[in-house]
Every structure is written in structure tokens, then in C-alpha cells.
């Protein structure tokens, strides 16, 4: 009752990283609230997985095992969560903002009539005063997230409804083992008591790996490279930084012509025009044809060993140095400073 609960994603025989990150954050919130941390694990062949989960400070693990729970489909997982929450009444529920969490979270919140905030970047405990009702709420979950295309940061609360539900993207919270020797209580759920007859409406026919089409236009962060990046291998660094920041890789025409990246990534007059929130220009001198495609970006960061590169005139930040030296540092310090 009144605990913090984390839904652990279990796919392809592995617990998702985001789940460990949320357990770490959940432990921290549970300590502040002086309550227990619970984990949910639904799937098939879950033997021994409590050993992976317990070190994050989990007190109770609810396990549901059935071959119909894996691979994930919406309805049986929803039924389990909804009925379990009606029994256990957690105060906070955290889920990954993944394809699974963003499919399951809203369905569960709707069934419980409780509030859900998607893609939180920070979670804090705090109080709230409702001046109109003259009511003070203690220890609410502040769910902090960007909105309006990333132009504002909103703090959302659920004063009256429980549980307070939030999803968080992978890599936003930090994974911290609280005690490697910690053990947790395991409660096995009898799935028969939770499933509804209509829960198996969706049949999975096939699953396979398939690359998605590249579309950099909708990306709010673009890490772009020019001919100065030097090679296809060095572009690998740009890809790493972009995926870490949740962005896409772009390129100049010269880099595309040299075969460093696909043509779909070309920014500029003969490529696509982009206006991301952040444009990181790596080894790009700043030909007018390229600038035409990106100069409306909100923040421009230029990495170049030539101080006089034309692009530096429109950049907000100019890092003077070699791309292959600077990007690994950016990756390292991003990881160190993110929560």
C-alpha cells in the first residue's frame, strides 16, 4: 500500500536498461517518502531474475509468468497492472517511455482514471498548495517534462488521483546499484485471477528487425558533419553522439558526395531544410548552400579547428578543436552530467 512501483520491461529474455534506471530513481523517491519500492515483472521464463532486480533496492517483486505474456501485447499486461493496482494501491508508478511503456501506460491510466505524464525528464517530491480550495498537498510527485515542441518545461502534478503515473525515456535517469547483496521478497501472481477473456484479441504474426527510413526533418537535435570529419568511421562518432542526445545525423553535400553518409541526411539547398532546437556542426566550414538549410536553428554549436570558418559567425558556441577529439569529450561529459 502506498508504495513506489516500477514496471520492468522484459523482452527477448532481457530486462530493459530503462527499467534499471527507473528502479534506481524509484529507490531514491521511496527513501524520500519513507515507503517501499516494488517492481513488476511480467513475462515467461522469469526464473532467477529477482537477482538482477534486487540490487537496485527493490523490497517486493511481483512476478507474473505465462507464455501469453511474452512477447508483449497490450491487453493482458493492462489487466494485470490494473487489477494489481486496485489491490496494492501504489502512490507512484514509473514506466519506460518506450514503445511498450507508451502503449501500456495510457491504457492503464485510463482504466484507473488516474493521471499520467509522458516523457518526464525530472521527477521530484514536493508540496502543493491549492489556493482556491485552501488545501495543502504534501509529498506529491513533480513530473517535469518539456512541452510545446521543447520550447517550455512544464511541472505536472496529480493532486487527487492515485497512482501518480509517469513515463521516462531511456538514458534520462542514472542506473545506480544500491546494495549488490540486497534480496527482495518475491510474490507470484496467479495470472488466472487477472486475465479477462478478451485479453488475447491481438495475435502477433511476425517480428523482425528492419531499419526505418531516415527522416531528419522532424528531429529537434541534429549532429551534422562536413567533409572535415574525414571518414565514414569518424561519422560513427557523430552517430553515437546523436543517438545519445536523441537526435539525428545530418551532413553537408561534400560529406555525402564523399560517401560518408546516406543522401537522405543532406542538409542545405539541394538537401533538406531543417530548423532544429540544437544543430551541432562538426567539421563544417559553412558554405552558403549549407547555411541556407540550417541557419534558422535555435542553437548552433560549431566544432572546427579553423577559427575563421564562416559557420562560426552564426554559431552560438564555437569549440575550437578536432572533431575526433571533441566529440568523445562531449559524450563523456553528457553522460556524467545527465541525471
Amino acid at each position: 500500500m502506498n508504495n513506489v512501483t516500477v514496471y520492468c520491461e522484459f523482452e527477448e529474455g532481457k530486462i530493459a536498461d530503462v527499467s534499471f534506471e527507473l528502479l534506481s530513481k524509484g529507490r531514491n523517491l521511496a527513501n524520500q517518502l519513507n515507503c517501499k519500492l516494488e517492481a513488476l515483472l511480467f513475462g515467461n521464463n522469469l526464473d532467477g531474475l529477482e537477482k538482477e532486480i534486487a540490487p537496485y533496492g527493490v523490497d517486493i517483486l511481483f512476478k507474473a509468468e505465462d507464455e501469453r505474456l511474452s512477447p508483449y501485447t497490450t491487453l493482458p499486461h493492462t489487466s494485470l497492472m490494473v487489477k494489481l493496482f486496485k489491490e496494492q494501491k501504489p502512490q507512484i508508478v514509473l514506466m519506460g517511455a518506450t514503445t511498450i511503456g507508451r502503449d501500456l501506460g495510457p491504457r492503464v491510466s485510463s482504466a484507473l482514471g488516474s493521471g499520467l505524464t509522458a516523457d518526464c525528464t525530472e521527477l521530484e517530491i514536493g508540496d502543493h498548495e491549492d489556493k482556491k480550495e485552501k488545501k495543502i498537498y504534501k509529498n506529491l510527485l513533480y513530473q517535469i517534462r518539456p512541452a510545446f515542441g521543447g520550447n517550455i518545461i512544464a511541472t505536472i502534478i496529480n493532486p487527487d488521483c492515485r497512482p501518480q503515473m509517469a513515463t521516462v525515456r531511456e538514458g534520462v535517469m542514472r542506473k545506480v546499484i544500491s546494495d549488490p547483496k540486497h534480496t527482495c521478497e518475491v510474490i507470484h501472481l496467479d495470472v488466472k485471477n487477472y486475465f479477462n477473456k478478451t485479453d488475447f484479441a491481438i495475435k502477433i504474426i511476425e517480428r523482425h528487425i528492419e531499419k526505418s527510413k531516415i527522416n531528419i526533418k522532424n528531429s529537434s537535435i541534429i549532429v551534422a558533419g562536413g567533409f572535415g570529419v574525414g571518414s565514414r568511421e569518424n561519422f560513427g562518432l557523430l552517430h553515437r553522439l546523436a543517438s545519445l542526445l536523441g537526435g539525428e545525423v545530418g551532413a553537408t553535400r561534400a560529406a555525402v558526395d564523399a560517401g560518408f553518409v546516406e543522401h537522405e541526411r543532406q542538409v542545405g539547398q539541394t538537401g533538406v531544410t531543417v530548423r532544429p532546437k540544437v544543430y551541432i556542426a562538426c567539421g563544417i566550414s559553412g558554405q552558403i548552400q549549407h547555411l541556407a538549410g540550417m541557419q534558422e536553428s535555435s542553437i548552433i554549436i560549431s566544432i572546427n579547428n579553423d577559427v575563421n570558418a564562416p559557420i562560426n559567425k552564426i554559431a552560438n558556441y564555437v569549440i575550437q578543436g578536432k572533431v575526433e577529439n571533441v566529440i568523445p569529450k562531449m559524450i563523456r561529459y553528457f553522460k556524467e552530467n545527465s541525471k
Binding site: G113, G115, I152, T155, N312, K313, N316, V318, G321
Partner: peptide, 25 residues
């Protein structure tokens, strides 16, 4: 609506003056 907006912070983008940064840790 169970969720309420408690607070909204606007993101203020920096001015156009560029800031020079050295390639140091």
C-alpha cells in the same frame, strides 16, 4: 483532468553572441 500544470518555465535561448570554447576537458 487528474493532471494539473503546477508551473511552466520558458526556455530562454541565448543571444547571438558566440561563445568560444577550447578543446579542454
Amino acid at each position: 483532468s487528474p493532471t494539473k500544470v503546477k508551473k511552466v518555465d520558458n526556455i530562454v535561448f541565448q543571444s547571438k553572441d558566440s561563445k568560444r570554447i577550447e578543446d579542454l576537458d
